[in-house]
Amino acid sequence: MAQVVRPKIISVISVTAIILILLAFPMLFMPSIKHMGDFVPMILGIVITLQFVSVIGVWHMKRWGVQLFIIMFTIRVITFMFLEMYNFRFYFNIFYSLLFIPVFLFHYRKMDTNL
């Protein structure tokens, strides 16, 4: 099975995305999030973790990574809207995701279809 060569732009974006996603992790401990409900940190945590997994997939040039990234971006936006969290994090997440997704889609055809 031939290894797909990863473009530099994907490497840069993946590293940036991993850092941004990991920086979002402490959000789960914020008192304001805890006060929203017992299961809110869990839901946000799952979304963040799956976003992390999706970026690992993109790093390995897998199509499922791009698909999962887009799905998780959509779910994250919907979750934030549902929780009425229209804060800096919400807009920043939209901003960087909308920057990254076109790049991922541009290289989508070159990516591997397997797990």
Partner: peptide
């Protein structure tokens, strides 16, 4: 719930 959630998610990450 928070403690268990964090544990599982850290394990996955």
């Amino acid at each position: 719930i928070l403690g268990l959630t964090i544990s599982v998610l850290i394990g996955i990450i």
